[in-house]
Amino acid sequence: MAAGQDSALIDRFLEMLAAEAGAARNTLTAYATDLRGASGFLHGRLGDADAAALERLAESWMQLARSTAARKAAALRRFYGFLADEGLRGDDPSGALPRPSTQRSLPRILTHGDVERIFDEIAAALARANPVPLDYRLAALIELLYGSGLRATELVSLPRKAISPDRPFLILRGKGERERLVPISDRARRAVAEWAAFVPVDSPWLFPSGKSHLSRIRLYQIIRALGARAGIPPERISPHVLRHAFATHLLEGGADLRALQAMLGHADIATTQIYTHVDSKRLVELVNSRHPLADIKPRVDDSETRA
């Protein structure tokens, strides 16, 4: 991969970062500096660097402050995650990078009230005298994001006939080319069927746009605009936040962690465990009400009976 290709990949990543996270100019500048610096060290081979190359790069950070090395590693991990999501790489070599801290930040989530306001906005749009086709598209997008936990890339690139009205599941090939079974709710299948009536019959995509399908960046913009109408600040909502909400709310409802891992397509259960940040009071109540010992009366000490 030539240096010019590195530059194009970095620009594409920064464009996505601005749309997904609403990153400030200073943040984007920092990412650009770190990534272009890494590309220079690797002689323009950042995009196709292997684990050994990244280990050499990390060694060059030995004299840097711990926080600086952590920032550079985080930028690269996010960059390679983006390449994998976009299908630009079949692997993610960032496991070779150092992790100065093992503590992971909790994902941003939406409350149940947030989600209700989002669906109220969609319902209001569809209840108008003459809903426009894009209202039906929005309903289908949100139902699949929040109802099935699809990744943004998986969602926008769905084939036109991927979801059938009489089949309550979808087989997806996601990150790392892993296949998984994704349940599709009755609501989502109904929303997709209503939107599909507006999709050109010769389109290979469920969500077409121009000569291809809806882009991830356009999806972020659509979700943020919907969030604004529902009173949700733009930094609190994105397609990935809706995926987080899907996972968190399922766990709060009693879903099994292994089942959730399968639905989300996580290779490692440790990734899914980040969603166990539920209210501690609820966990205590869960143990008290659902644990087998909850039905067993405590033994009364004989000495207490005789006293």
Rank of each mutant, 00 (worst) to 15 (best):
H244W: 06
G254I: 04
P165V: 09
D92W: 01
G210S: 12
G95R: 12
A125K: 07
D279I: 06
L293P: 00
Y31D: 13
E177M: 06
N26E: 14
H249C: 09
V132D: 01
A53C: 01
P165L: 13
A124I: 03
D302S: 15
P200S: 05
Q103R: 14
S148K: 08
T102P: 03
E15H: 15
D279T: 02
R12P: 15
H43R: 13
F79Y: 10
P133N: 12
V284R: 12
I122S: 07
A84Q: 15
S39Y: 05
G147R: 07
E285N: 10
L257F: 01
R229K: 15
P234F: 00
L286E: 10
A245R: 01
R36Y: 08
R243N: 07
A294P: 14
R99S: 12
Y275F: 13
S164H: 15
D11A: 12
E116K: 08
A262Y: 00
R25A: 08
P233S: 07
D92H: 14
Y275K: 02
R117A: 14
S164G: 07
A230S: 02
R77C: 10
R36I: 08
I296Q: 06
P100E: 08
A228R: 15
A49I: 11
T29Y: 05
A84L: 15
V132G: 06
D91K: 08
Q103T: 01
E86R: 13
I269E: 03
P200T: 01
A162L: 05
P131N: 10
L264M: 11
S39K: 05
G37P: 09
S148N: 00
D120L: 14
S101H: 05
G90N: 01
E86V: 04
A23S: 13
R216F: 12
R189Y: 00
P159N: 12
A228V: 15
R108F: 02
T27S: 15
E177D: 14
D135S: 01
H266P: 00
S157E: 12
L286N: 08
P168R: 04
I269T: 12
R77E: 10
H43P: 03
V192A: 03
P204W: 10
I142R: 00
L14K: 11
